[in-house]
Design a protein around this nucleic acid. Sequence first.
RNA 1: UGAGGGCGCCAGACGAUCGCAGGCGCGAAAGCGCCUGAGGAAAGUCCGAGCACCGCAGGGCAGGGUGCCGGUUAACUGCCGGUGGAGGCGACUUUAAGGAAAGUGCAACAGAGAUAUACCGCGUAAAGGGCCGCGCCUUUGGGCGCAGGUCUCCCCAAAAGGGGACGUAAGGGUGGAAAGGCGAGGUAAGAGCUCACCAGCGGCAUGGCGACUUGUCCGCUCUGUAAACCCCACCUGGUGCAAGAUUGAUAGGGAAGCAUGGGCGCUUGCGCCCGGCGGCGGCCCGUCGCGCUUCCGGGUAAUCGCUUGAGCCUGCUGGCAACCGCAGGCCCAGAUAGAUGAUCGUCCAAUACAGAACUCGGCUUACAGACGUCACUCACAAU
RNA 2: GCCGCCAUGGUCAAGCGGUUAAGACGUCGCCCUCUCACGGCGAAAACCGGGGUUCGAGUCCCCGUGGCGGUG
Length: 124
Amino acid sequence: MEGKREGAARSESFGRQYRLGSNRNYRYVYRRGKSTPSRYLVLIYLKGRELKIGFSASGKVGNAVTRNRVRRWLREDVRRLRGRMKSGKYVFIARTAIADAPHEAVTRDLHRLLARAKLLKEED
RNA sequence: UGAGGGCGCCAGACGAUCGCAGGCGCGAAAGCGCCUGAGGAAAGUCCGAGCACCGCAGGGCAGGGUGCCGGUUAACUGCCGGUGGAGGCGACUUUAAGGAAAGUGCAACAGAGAUAUACCGCGUAAAGGGCCGCGCCUUUGGGCGCAGGUCUCCCCAAAAGGGGACGUAAGGGUGGAAAGGCGAGGUAAGAGCUCACCAGCGGCAUGGCGACUUGUCCGCUCUGUAAACCCCACCUGGUGCAAGAUUGAUAGGGAAGCAUGGGCGCUUGCGCCCGGCGGCGGCCCGUCGCGCUUCCGGGUAAUCGCUUGAGCCUGCUGGCAACCGCAGGCCCAGAUAGAUGAUCGUCCAAUACAGAACUCGGCUUACAGACGUCACUCACAAU
RNA sequence: GCCGCCAUGGUCAAGCGGUUAAGACGUCGCCCUCUCACGGCGAAAACCGGGGUUCGAGUCCCCGUGGCGGUG
Protein backbone atom coordinates (compact mmCIF):
# COMPACT_ATOMS: atom_id res chain seq x y z
CA MET A 1 0.00 0.00 0.00
CA GLU A 2 2.81 2.38 0.90
CA GLY A 3 4.71 1.53 -2.23
CA LYS A 4 1.73 2.13 -4.43
CA ARG A 5 1.04 5.55 -2.87
CA GLU A 6 4.57 6.76 -3.20
CA GLY A 7 4.91 6.52 -6.95
CA ALA A 8 7.59 8.59 -8.67
CA ALA A 9 4.99 10.94 -10.15
CA ARG A 10 3.59 11.96 -6.77
CA SER A 11 6.69 11.88 -4.65
CA GLU A 12 7.05 15.66 -4.77
CA SER A 13 3.47 16.49 -3.95
CA PHE A 14 2.90 17.88 -0.47
CA GLY A 15 -0.68 18.36 0.51
CA ARG A 16 -2.50 19.13 3.69
CA GLN A 17 -2.61 15.48 4.75
CA TYR A 18 1.08 15.68 5.68
CA ARG A 19 0.58 18.69 7.97
CA LEU A 20 0.65 18.52 11.70
CA GLY A 21 -2.71 20.19 12.23
CA SER A 22 -3.97 22.00 15.23
CA ASN A 23 -2.17 23.70 18.07
CA ARG A 24 -2.77 20.72 20.36
CA ASN A 25 -0.52 18.50 18.21
CA TYR A 26 2.23 21.10 18.27
CA ARG A 27 2.14 21.27 22.04
CA TYR A 28 2.25 17.47 22.23
CA VAL A 29 5.39 17.34 20.04
CA TYR A 30 7.06 20.16 21.98
CA ARG A 31 6.56 18.24 25.22
CA ARG A 32 7.59 14.75 24.06
CA GLY A 33 9.93 15.33 21.12
CA LYS A 34 13.70 15.61 20.80
CA SER A 35 15.11 18.93 19.66
CA THR A 36 18.06 19.51 17.33
CA PRO A 37 19.29 23.04 16.65
CA SER A 38 21.10 24.57 13.68
CA ARG A 39 22.08 28.05 12.58
CA TYR A 40 18.69 29.04 11.17
CA LEU A 41 16.36 26.35 12.52
CA VAL A 42 15.35 24.20 15.44
CA LEU A 43 13.92 20.74 14.64
CA ILE A 44 11.72 18.92 17.11
CA TYR A 45 11.10 15.27 16.20
CA LEU A 46 8.86 12.64 17.70
CA LYS A 47 8.70 9.05 16.39
CA GLY A 48 5.41 8.02 14.85
CA ARG A 49 3.83 5.82 12.23
CA GLU A 50 2.72 8.62 9.89
CA LEU A 51 4.70 11.51 8.41
CA LYS A 52 3.38 14.78 9.85
CA ILE A 53 5.27 18.05 9.45
CA GLY A 54 4.62 21.49 10.92
CA PHE A 55 6.33 24.86 10.52
CA SER A 56 6.54 27.69 12.98
CA ALA A 57 7.82 31.24 12.69
CA SER A 58 7.14 33.53 15.61
CA GLY A 59 6.73 37.25 15.57
CA LYS A 60 10.36 37.75 16.49
CA VAL A 61 11.42 36.55 13.02
CA GLY A 62 9.93 39.55 11.27
CA ASN A 63 6.74 40.95 9.83
CA ALA A 64 4.03 38.90 8.14
CA VAL A 65 5.74 38.97 4.72
CA THR A 66 9.04 37.71 6.12
CA ARG A 67 7.38 34.95 8.11
CA ASN A 68 5.36 33.81 5.12
CA ARG A 69 8.45 33.78 2.92
CA VAL A 70 10.40 31.69 5.43
CA ARG A 71 7.60 29.16 5.82
CA ARG A 72 7.22 28.85 2.05
CA TRP A 73 10.93 28.22 1.61
CA LEU A 74 10.83 25.54 4.27
CA ARG A 75 7.75 23.93 2.77
CA GLU A 76 9.35 23.91 -0.66
CA ASP A 77 12.56 22.30 0.61
CA VAL A 78 10.70 19.74 2.71
CA ARG A 79 8.44 18.95 -0.25
CA ARG A 80 11.48 17.90 -2.29
CA LEU A 81 12.87 15.81 0.57
CA ARG A 82 9.61 14.28 1.69
CA GLY A 83 10.11 10.90 0.05
CA ARG A 84 13.46 10.41 1.82
CA MET A 85 12.35 11.40 5.31
CA LYS A 86 11.59 8.84 8.02
CA SER A 87 8.06 8.79 9.38
CA GLY A 88 7.20 10.68 12.55
CA LYS A 89 6.16 14.11 13.70
CA TYR A 90 8.38 17.03 12.79
CA VAL A 91 8.23 20.68 13.83
CA PHE A 92 10.58 23.14 12.16
CA ILE A 93 10.98 26.39 14.10
CA ALA A 94 12.53 29.39 12.39
CA ARG A 95 15.15 31.33 14.34
CA THR A 96 15.64 35.07 14.05
CA ALA A 97 18.81 34.84 11.93
CA ILE A 98 16.85 33.27 9.07
CA ALA A 99 15.26 36.61 8.20
CA ASP A 100 18.43 37.90 6.49
CA ALA A 101 19.54 34.59 4.97
CA PRO A 102 19.28 33.74 1.23
CA HIS A 103 17.24 30.74 0.18
CA GLU A 104 20.10 28.44 -0.79
CA ALA A 105 21.73 28.90 2.63
CA VAL A 106 18.50 27.83 4.30
CA THR A 107 18.27 24.81 1.98
CA ARG A 108 21.84 23.66 2.85
CA ASP A 109 21.17 24.25 6.54
CA LEU A 110 18.03 22.11 6.40
CA HIS A 111 19.87 19.23 4.64
CA ARG A 112 22.68 19.22 7.19
CA LEU A 113 20.18 19.39 10.06
CA LEU A 114 18.25 16.33 8.88
CA ALA A 115 21.46 14.41 8.19
CA ARG A 116 22.80 15.20 11.64
CA ALA A 117 19.56 14.05 13.27
CA LYS A 118 19.81 10.80 11.19
CA LEU A 119 16.28 11.19 9.91
CA LEU A 120 17.00 10.60 6.20
CA LYS A 121 16.45 7.16 4.76
CA GLU A 122 19.48 5.43 3.31
CA GLU A 123 19.79 5.86 -0.44
CA ASP A 124 19.08 2.27 -1.51
C1' U B 1 15.87 75.62 -20.96
C1' G B 2 15.69 75.49 -15.66
C1' A B 3 12.93 75.66 -11.04
C1' G B 4 8.21 74.69 -9.22
C1' G B 5 2.37 73.91 -8.60
C1' G B 6 -2.37 71.20 -9.33
C1' C B 7 -4.82 66.62 -10.94
C1' G B 8 -4.26 61.46 -12.17
C1' C B 9 -2.01 56.45 -13.06
C1' C B 10 1.33 51.96 -12.50
C1' A B 11 3.58 48.87 -8.49
C1' G B 12 7.78 44.41 -13.19
C1' A B 13 6.32 41.52 -17.80
C1' C B 14 6.53 36.91 -20.75
C1' G B 15 7.75 31.59 -21.33
C1' A B 16 9.08 26.42 -19.42
C1' U B 17 9.07 22.51 -15.42
C1' C B 18 7.61 21.03 -10.39
C1' G B 19 4.23 22.39 -6.33
C1' C B 20 -0.22 24.81 -3.03
C1' A B 21 -5.76 26.51 -1.89
C1' G B 22 -10.99 26.97 -3.42
C1' G B 23 -14.94 25.99 -7.01
C1' C B 24 -17.00 23.09 -11.10
C1' G B 25 -16.98 18.60 -14.09
C1' C B 26 -15.65 13.27 -14.80
C1' G B 27 -14.64 8.86 -11.87
C1' A B 28 -16.36 3.16 -7.52
C1' A B 29 -11.86 5.08 -5.56
C1' A B 30 -6.98 6.76 -6.20
C1' G B 31 -6.89 10.69 -9.11
C1' C B 32 -7.43 13.71 -13.73
C1' G B 33 -9.13 18.17 -16.49
C1' C B 34 -10.76 23.35 -16.55
C1' C B 35 -11.41 28.15 -14.06
C1' U B 36 -10.02 31.45 -10.15
C1' G B 37 -6.48 32.93 -6.38
C1' A B 38 -3.69 39.44 -1.74
C1' G B 39 -2.78 45.63 -1.47
C1' G B 40 -2.43 50.85 -2.57
C1' A B 41 -1.64 50.89 1.54
C1' A B 42 -4.21 44.25 2.75
C1' A B 43 -0.57 47.86 7.88
C1' G B 44 -1.57 51.11 12.42
C1' U B 45 -6.51 50.07 14.79
C1' C B 46 -7.47 56.47 14.86
C1' C B 47 -12.87 57.47 13.47
C1' G B 48 -17.69 56.11 11.08
C1' A B 49 -21.29 52.30 9.69
C1' G B 50 -23.45 47.39 8.45
C1' C B 51 -24.18 42.68 11.05
C1' A B 52 -24.73 39.81 15.74
C1' C B 53 -25.78 39.14 20.84
C1' C B 54 -26.77 41.46 25.70
C1' G B 55 -29.60 45.48 27.89
C1' C B 56 -33.85 48.75 27.41
C1' A B 57 -41.74 51.31 30.66
C1' G B 58 -40.38 56.32 31.13
C1' G B 59 -37.62 60.56 32.94
C1' G B 60 -33.34 63.12 34.98
C1' C B 61 -28.11 63.60 36.16
C1' A B 62 -23.24 62.22 35.14
C1' G B 63 -19.73 60.64 31.33
C1' G B 64 -17.89 60.74 26.12
C1' G B 65 -17.61 63.15 21.31
C1' U B 66 -18.05 67.12 17.62
C1' G B 67 -17.34 72.69 16.96
C1' C B 68 -16.32 79.00 10.73
C1' C B 69 -20.42 78.49 6.66
C1' G B 70 -23.02 75.71 2.85
C1' G B 71 -23.32 71.09 0.54
C1' U B 72 -22.41 65.62 0.12
C1' U B 73 -23.14 60.68 2.30
C1' A B 74 -25.96 54.87 5.12
C1' A B 75 -22.70 57.44 8.55
C1' C B 76 -18.32 60.10 10.09
C1' U B 77 -13.28 63.67 13.55
C1' G B 78 -14.35 61.96 6.17
C1' C B 79 -14.96 64.42 1.36
C1' C B 80 -16.22 68.86 -1.90
C1' G B 81 -16.97 74.14 -2.51
C1' G B 82 -16.62 78.77 -0.02
C1' U B 83 -15.35 82.57 4.29
C1' G B 84 -11.68 84.47 7.80
C1' G B 85 -6.42 83.70 9.57
C1' A B 86 -1.18 82.12 8.41
C1' G B 87 2.80 81.13 4.58
C1' G B 88 4.72 81.91 -0.55
C1' C B 89 7.29 86.89 -5.77
C1' G B 90 3.60 83.56 -7.89
C1' A B 91 0.76 79.09 -9.58
C1' C B 92 -0.98 77.65 -4.89
C1' U B 93 -0.47 75.49 0.09
C1' U B 94 -2.17 75.21 5.02
C1' U B 95 -5.57 75.89 9.25
C1' A B 96 -9.11 71.57 16.41
C1' A B 97 -11.34 78.30 13.34
C1' G B 98 -18.01 78.69 18.60
C1' G B 99 -18.11 81.82 23.30
C1' A B 100 -12.88 85.42 27.33
C1' A B 101 -18.74 91.50 26.73
C1' A B 102 -22.13 84.79 31.99
C1' G B 103 -19.00 83.10 36.00
C1' U B 104 -14.54 80.65 38.35
C1' G B 105 -9.35 79.39 38.17
C1' C B 106 -4.22 80.19 36.50
C1' A B 107 -0.30 83.79 34.67
C1' A B 108 6.42 81.07 37.60
C1' C B 109 10.76 84.52 37.13
C1' A B 110 11.32 89.66 36.24
C1' G B 111 8.91 94.20 37.38
C1' A B 112 6.70 99.84 41.39
C1' G B 113 2.40 97.42 39.57
C1' A B 114 -0.52 91.36 36.40
C1' U B 115 -6.29 93.02 36.02
C1' A B 116 -5.17 96.77 38.87
C1' U B 117 -0.94 99.68 40.61
C1' A B 118 1.98 104.42 41.77
C1' C B 119 8.78 103.15 42.36
C1' C B 120 11.34 107.05 39.65
C1' G B 121 9.34 111.19 37.21
C1' C B 122 5.87 115.63 36.24
C1' G B 123 2.72 119.23 38.81
C1' U B 124 0.37 122.33 43.18
C1' A B 125 -4.48 124.23 39.23
C1' A B 126 -9.71 125.75 40.17
C1' A B 127 -12.69 127.88 44.12
C1' G B 128 -11.92 131.02 48.25
C1' G B 129 -8.68 134.52 50.65
C1' G B 130 -4.43 138.27 51.56
C1' C B 131 -1.57 142.39 49.53
C1' C B 132 -0.76 145.77 45.43
C1' G B 133 -2.65 148.44 41.08
C1' C B 134 -6.66 150.92 38.47
C1' G B 135 -11.70 152.97 38.29
C1' C B 136 -16.11 154.83 40.81
C1' C B 137 -18.54 156.43 45.32
C1' U B 138 -17.50 158.60 50.08
C1' U B 139 -20.30 160.57 56.00
C1' U B 140 -12.49 160.37 55.05
C1' G B 141 -13.45 155.28 58.93
C1' G B 142 -13.80 153.05 54.37
C1' G B 143 -17.07 150.59 50.60
C1' C B 144 -18.04 148.54 45.66
C1' G B 145 -16.09 146.77 41.12
C1' C B 146 -12.20 144.53 37.62
C1' A B 147 -10.68 139.60 31.18
C1' G B 148 -5.23 143.63 36.11
C1' G B 149 -0.54 142.03 38.95
C1' U B 150 1.39 139.01 42.85
C1' C B 151 1.23 135.35 46.98
C1' U B 152 -1.33 131.09 48.91
C1' C B 153 -1.69 122.51 50.06
C1' C B 154 0.73 120.94 55.20
C1' C B 155 5.33 120.32 58.38
C1' C B 156 10.77 121.48 59.31
C1' A B 157 13.95 125.66 57.75
C1' A B 158 16.35 132.55 57.54
C1' A B 159 16.99 130.62 52.69
C1' A B 160 18.57 126.81 49.54
C1' G B 161 16.46 122.46 50.32
C1' G B 162 14.17 118.10 52.75
C1' G B 163 9.79 115.29 54.24
C1' G B 164 4.50 114.50 53.64
C1' A B 165 -0.51 115.10 51.21
C1' C B 166 -3.13 115.40 46.75
C1' G B 167 -3.43 115.24 41.29
C1' U B 168 -1.49 112.54 36.96
C1' A B 169 -0.72 107.96 33.87
C1' A B 170 2.67 111.46 28.92
C1' G B 171 8.11 109.43 29.77
C1' G B 172 11.49 105.31 32.31
C1' G B 173 12.83 100.17 32.96
C1' U B 174 10.46 94.57 33.42
C1' G B 175 7.53 91.18 30.85
C1' G B 176 4.43 86.94 26.31
C1' A B 177 0.88 90.68 28.07
C1' A B 178 1.18 97.40 31.39
C1' A B 179 -5.44 100.20 29.86
C1' G B 180 -5.59 101.22 21.43
C1' G B 181 -1.24 103.58 17.81
C1' C B 182 0.78 108.19 16.01
C1' G B 183 0.57 113.55 15.42
C1' A B 184 -1.67 118.17 16.89
C1' G B 185 -4.54 120.99 20.26
C1' G B 186 -5.24 121.36 25.36
C1' U B 187 -3.45 121.53 30.64
C1' A B 188 -0.77 123.21 36.90
C1' A B 189 1.14 118.62 35.10
C1' G B 190 -1.41 115.25 32.29
C1' A B 191 -4.93 111.93 30.15
C1' G B 192 -9.73 109.93 23.75
C1' C B 193 -10.12 115.31 27.52
C1' U B 194 -10.83 117.24 22.10
C1' C B 195 -9.58 116.70 16.76
C1' A B 196 -7.39 114.36 11.99
C1' C B 197 -5.64 109.59 10.20
C1' C B 198 -5.18 104.40 11.38
C1' A B 199 -6.54 99.68 14.28
C1' G B 200 -10.14 96.84 16.96
C1' C B 201 -15.18 95.82 19.18
C1' G B 202 -20.49 96.72 19.14
C1' G B 203 -24.91 98.98 16.64
C1' C B 204 -27.23 100.38 12.00
C1' A B 205 -27.47 99.99 6.65
C1' U B 206 -25.88 97.20 2.19
C1' G B 207 -24.83 92.49 -0.75
C1' G B 208 -24.95 87.16 0.28
C1' C B 209 -29.02 80.94 1.93
C1' G B 210 -24.74 81.59 5.27
C1' A B 211 -19.61 82.13 7.35
C1' C B 212 -18.77 87.09 6.07
C1' U B 213 -18.01 91.56 2.91
C1' U B 214 -18.53 96.79 1.99
C1' G B 215 -20.15 101.33 4.01
C1' U B 216 -21.63 104.68 7.94
C1' C B 217 -18.72 107.45 11.68
C1' C B 218 -23.83 106.41 15.84
C1' G B 219 -21.46 104.42 20.46
C1' C B 220 -17.07 102.19 22.79
C1' U B 221 -11.26 101.15 23.72
C1' C B 222 -12.25 95.71 26.56
C1' U B 223 -4.68 91.44 28.76
C1' G B 224 -3.92 86.19 27.64
C1' U B 225 -5.57 81.21 28.43
C1' A B 226 -11.54 77.18 27.16
C1' A B 227 -5.84 70.93 23.39
C1' A B 228 -8.01 74.83 32.35
C1' C B 229 -13.04 74.23 34.70
C1' C B 230 -16.98 75.95 32.10
C1' C B 231 -21.21 78.12 28.82
C1' C B 232 -23.88 77.40 24.13
C1' A B 233 -25.47 74.17 19.96
C1' C B 234 -25.71 69.24 18.08
C1' C B 235 -24.70 63.85 18.57
C1' U B 236 -24.28 59.63 21.92
C1' G B 237 -26.68 52.26 25.43
C1' G B 238 -22.71 48.11 25.98
C1' U B 239 -19.79 44.38 23.73
C1' G B 240 -17.45 42.75 19.57
C1' C B 241 -17.27 37.33 14.28
C1' A B 242 -12.81 34.33 19.95
C1' A B 243 -20.04 38.41 18.14
C1' G B 244 -23.38 34.62 17.65
C1' A B 245 -26.62 30.30 15.49
C1' U B 246 -27.52 24.97 14.73
C1' U B 247 -26.23 19.91 15.74
C1' G B 248 -23.63 16.79 18.99
C1' A B 249 -21.77 15.97 24.09
C1' U B 250 -23.51 16.05 28.87
C1' A B 251 -27.56 17.38 32.88
C1' G B 252 -33.31 20.28 34.77
C1' G B 253 -25.20 17.94 37.59
C1' G B 254 -23.44 17.34 42.81
C1' A B 255 -22.20 19.20 47.87
C1' A B 256 -22.30 22.78 51.89
C1' G B 257 -24.12 27.17 54.32
C1' C B 258 -27.67 31.13 55.24
C1' A B 259 -32.73 32.88 55.01
C1' U B 260 -37.98 31.48 54.90
C1' G B 261 -39.25 37.85 59.48
C1' G B 262 -43.42 41.20 61.47
C1' G B 263 -48.67 42.93 61.30
C1' C B 264 -53.88 42.33 59.69
C1' G B 265 -57.86 39.15 57.75
C1' C B 266 -59.85 34.67 58.15
C1' U B 267 -61.73 29.30 55.20
C1' U B 268 -55.31 27.44 59.19
C1' G B 269 -52.42 27.90 54.79
C1' C B 270 -53.56 31.36 51.59
C1' G B 271 -54.36 36.86 50.49
C1' C B 272 -52.80 41.99 51.42
C1' C B 273 -49.30 45.56 53.63
C1' C B 274 -44.37 46.68 55.77
C1' G B 275 -39.47 44.90 55.78
C1' G B 276 -35.35 41.98 53.09
C1' C B 277 -32.65 40.54 48.62
C1' G B 278 -31.83 40.97 43.39
C1' G B 279 -32.30 43.15 38.03
C1' C B 280 -32.57 47.77 35.01
C1' G B 281 -23.77 46.62 33.33
C1' G B 282 -22.00 54.57 35.85
C1' C B 283 -25.82 56.88 39.50
C1' C B 284 -30.82 58.54 41.18
C1' C B 285 -36.16 58.76 40.97
C1' G B 286 -39.10 55.14 39.64
C1' U B 287 -40.28 50.32 38.24
C1' C B 288 -40.09 44.91 37.79
C1' G B 289 -39.04 40.10 39.96
C1' C B 290 -38.83 36.55 44.39
C1' G B 291 -35.02 32.23 47.47
C1' C B 292 -29.78 33.62 47.92
C1' U B 293 -24.42 32.67 48.53
C1' U B 294 -19.98 29.62 48.19
C1' C B 295 -17.25 25.34 46.43
C1' C B 296 -16.45 21.03 43.11
C1' G B 297 -17.04 18.56 38.50
C1' G B 298 -18.12 18.32 33.22
C1' G B 299 -17.58 20.70 28.37
C1' U B 300 -14.55 23.88 24.88
C1' A B 301 -15.80 19.47 18.42
C1' A B 302 -18.29 19.96 13.50
C1' U B 303 -21.21 22.96 10.29
C1' C B 304 -23.11 27.79 9.46
C1' G B 305 -21.85 33.01 10.12
C1' C B 306 -18.09 33.55 5.24
C1' U B 307 -18.57 36.55 1.08
C1' U B 308 -23.57 39.56 -4.18
C1' G B 309 -21.78 44.04 -1.83
C1' A B 310 -23.99 51.51 0.50
C1' G B 311 -20.01 45.97 -5.29
C1' C B 312 -16.92 46.73 -9.90
C1' C B 313 -16.42 48.36 -15.25
C1' U B 314 -18.18 51.25 -19.57
C1' G B 315 -21.27 55.10 -21.59
C1' C B 316 -24.70 59.12 -20.97
C1' U B 317 -27.18 62.96 -17.84
C1' G B 318 -27.29 66.90 -13.62
C1' G B 319 -23.66 69.58 -10.60
C1' C B 320 -17.63 74.19 -10.23
C1' A B 321 -16.91 69.71 -7.22
C1' A B 322 -17.68 65.85 -3.49
C1' C B 323 -21.60 63.19 -5.37
C1' C B 324 -26.24 61.72 -7.63
C1' G B 325 -29.43 59.47 -11.46
C1' C B 326 -30.18 56.24 -15.82
C1' A B 327 -28.73 52.25 -19.29
C1' G B 328 -25.72 48.05 -20.47
C1' G B 329 -22.21 44.47 -18.93
C1' C B 330 -19.49 41.56 -15.05
C1' C B 331 -18.91 37.96 -10.54
C1' C B 332 -13.55 39.44 -8.73
C1' A B 333 -9.66 35.06 -2.39
C1' G B 334 -12.56 32.80 1.41
C1' A B 335 -8.25 29.75 4.25
C1' U B 336 -8.61 27.60 9.70
C1' A B 337 -1.33 26.63 12.01
C1' G B 338 -3.64 29.48 7.78
C1' A B 339 -3.26 28.77 0.25
C1' U B 340 0.71 32.76 -4.58
C1' G B 341 6.35 29.30 -3.83
C1' A B 342 11.01 27.05 -6.12
C1' U B 343 14.46 26.61 -10.37
C1' C B 344 15.86 28.29 -15.29
C1' G B 345 15.65 31.66 -19.61
C1' U B 346 14.49 36.55 -22.18
C1' C B 347 13.39 41.91 -21.72
C1' C B 348 14.65 45.79 -18.10
C1' A B 349 18.56 51.18 -15.07
C1' A B 350 16.32 48.63 -10.90
C1' U B 351 12.44 46.16 -7.91
C1' A B 352 10.48 49.71 -2.62
C1' C B 353 6.90 49.44 1.37
C1' A B 354 4.65 45.25 2.39
C1' G B 355 0.33 39.55 3.00
C1' A B 356 -6.86 39.15 3.20
C1' A B 357 -8.87 36.41 8.41
C1' C B 358 -16.78 39.13 9.12
C1' U B 359 -17.59 43.20 5.49
C1' C B 360 -17.61 48.22 3.76
C1' G B 361 -16.53 54.12 3.89
C1' G B 362 -12.57 57.23 5.45
C1' C B 363 -8.10 58.96 8.17
C1' U B 364 -2.99 58.22 9.43
C1' U B 365 1.69 56.07 8.69
C1' A B 366 5.57 53.25 5.27
C1' C B 367 7.28 53.24 0.14
C1' A B 368 12.56 51.83 -4.87
C1' G B 369 11.14 53.84 -8.85
C1' A B 370 8.38 54.59 -13.76
C1' C B 371 4.99 57.77 -16.19
C1' G B 372 0.64 60.90 -18.08
C1' U B 373 -1.79 65.65 -18.21
C1' C B 374 -2.74 71.28 -17.58
C1' A B 375 -3.69 77.92 -22.93
C1' C B 376 -1.04 76.70 -14.13
C1' U B 377 3.32 79.88 -12.06
C1' C B 378 8.31 82.12 -11.76
C1' A B 379 13.27 83.07 -13.88
C1' C B 380 16.47 83.32 -18.10
C1' A B 381 17.22 83.26 -23.48
C1' A B 382 15.42 83.95 -28.48
C1' U B 383 11.64 85.96 -31.70
C1' G C 1 -7.87 38.49 14.59
C1' C C 2 -10.07 41.53 18.54
C1' C C 3 -9.60 44.51 23.19
C1' G C 4 -6.60 47.05 26.73
C1' C C 5 -2.19 49.09 29.49
C1' C C 6 2.70 51.22 29.97
C1' A C 7 7.28 54.15 28.61
C1' U C 8 11.55 59.50 33.47
C1' G C 9 19.86 58.30 34.79
C1' G C 10 22.61 51.41 34.50
C1' U C 11 18.06 49.47 37.84
C1' C C 12 13.63 50.69 40.92
C1' A C 13 10.98 54.81 40.80
C1' A C 14 8.34 60.49 42.67
C1' G C 15 6.85 64.61 40.04
C1' C C 16 -0.83 70.83 40.79
C1' G C 17 1.56 73.64 33.37
C1' G C 18 6.42 77.47 36.30
C1' U C 19 13.68 77.90 39.34
C1' U C 20 18.90 74.18 37.51
C1' A C 21 13.42 67.41 37.11
C1' A C 22 13.02 64.56 43.82
C1' G C 23 14.70 59.96 46.16
C1' A C 24 16.85 54.91 46.75
C1' C C 25 20.28 51.11 44.96
C1' G C 26 24.43 50.89 41.73
C1' U C 27 29.08 53.56 39.34
C1' C C 28 33.32 56.98 39.94
C1' G C 29 36.59 60.29 43.05
C1' C C 30 38.25 61.93 47.95
C1' C C 31 38.26 61.23 53.44
C1' C C 32 38.19 57.57 57.50
C1' U C 33 41.02 52.42 58.36
C1' C C 34 47.08 48.65 58.69
C1' U C 35 43.39 46.74 54.71
C1' C C 36 38.24 45.64 53.46
C1' A C 37 33.33 46.58 54.94
C1' C C 38 30.36 50.31 57.44
C1' G C 39 30.27 55.57 57.65
C1' G C 40 31.14 60.83 55.76
C1' C C 41 31.79 64.41 51.59
C1' G C 42 31.43 65.21 46.42
C1' A C 43 30.63 64.09 41.08
C1' A C 44 28.75 62.02 36.46
C1' A C 45 24.25 60.22 34.53
C1' A C 46 17.38 60.56 32.43
C1' C C 47 11.71 62.72 30.58
C1' C C 48 10.66 56.92 23.72
C1' G C 49 10.42 60.02 18.69
C1' G C 50 7.92 63.99 15.71
C1' G C 51 4.31 67.87 15.39
C1' G C 52 0.70 71.24 17.88
C1' U C 53 -1.83 74.39 22.10
C1' U C 54 0.51 77.87 25.64
C1' C C 55 4.55 83.41 27.49
C1' G C 56 6.21 78.44 29.16
C1' A C 57 5.04 71.16 28.21
C1' G C 58 8.00 65.37 31.63
C1' U C 59 2.74 67.01 32.51
C1' C C 60 -2.45 68.97 27.87
C1' C C 61 -3.86 67.38 22.44
C1' C C 62 -2.63 64.64 17.74
C1' C C 63 0.44 61.13 14.96
C1' G C 64 4.07 57.43 15.22
C1' U C 65 7.81 53.79 17.70
C1' G C 66 8.83 50.10 21.23
C1' G C 67 7.37 46.88 25.22
C1' C C 68 3.66 44.14 28.13
C1' G C 69 -1.06 41.91 29.23
C1' G C 70 -6.10 39.88 28.42
C1' U C 71 -9.39 37.13 25.18
C1' G C 72 -15.23 31.14 24.26
